[in-house]
Amino acid sequence: MERIPILRMGEYLLVTIQVDMHDRLAMTLQDDLTNRISETSAKGVLIDISSLEIVDSFIGRMLGNIASMSRVLDADTVVVGMRPAVAITLVELGMSLTGVRTALNVDAGMDLLRNSLDARKDALYGSRIH
């Protein structure tokens, strides 16, 4: 069965969506990512959608589900690279993508994930460092 590859980079998982996904492929990605987060105890997920020419309500829902599921599994999700035309269209479609964090590109997205992880570690262990 066709699958979108999920790369592991240390504490993070990286997904680059490079094809126009049919609906089942999007659902499979959602399930695969959930399993991988739990298997690897990943602290963050970065999803690069810069190749996507559209995001409709189905893909939008998938991104929202991934963000909620990763939150429950103690990982952050950042969606990066949304094209301007896609962003404009999403707003008109009525999709707010609430709960989905976004960044302009992969570098900015990785920074966001690292800062967020650092902040979480500080909150946990910070009081011991004096």
Binding site: D23, E53, I54, V55, D56, S57, F58, R83, P84, A85, V86, I88, T89, E92, L93
Partner: peptide
């Protein structure tokens, strides 16, 4: 335009589904 293409393709995707 690219934005108009994106809008009509997105509408088509919703209606086809």
């Amino acid at each position: 335009s690219l934005v108009d293409q994106t809008k009509v393709v997105t509408a088509a995707s919703e209606l086809a589904r």
